[in-house]
Amino acid sequence: MLWPIDLIVLTFVIFCAIAAITVRDLLGTAILFSAYSFLMCLLWAVMGAVDVAFTEASVGAGVSTVFLVAAVFRTSRRTKD
C-alpha cells in the first residue's frame, strides 16, 4: 500500500546506520542516531504501530540524543579508530 514510502525511508535508515558507524566525529554520530530514530519512527507509524512510533520519537530521537551529546561533551569528540 505504502511501499514507496517504505522503500525511501528504509534506504535512508540504512544510509544513517552506515554513516553513524563510519563518521569519526562523535557529535555527528549522535545526530545521525537521532535521524536514524526519527526514520524508524516513521517506519513504525507507516506500519500502524503508533505507540511504538511515539516511544521511538520521544526516547530514541529525543532524550537518548541529549544523553549522547552530554556524554560527548564530557569525554572526547574524536574517536581513536
Binding site: V50, D51, A53, F54, T55, S58, V59, G62, V63, V66
Partner: peptide, 13 residues
C-alpha cells in the same frame, strides 16, 4: 497513543 512512559520522557525532556 501514549502513556506513562512517553509522557514521563517528554516531561523529563
Amino acid at each position: 497513543p501514549g502513556g506513562g512512559f512517553q509522557g514521563g520522557v517528554i516531561f523529563g525532556s
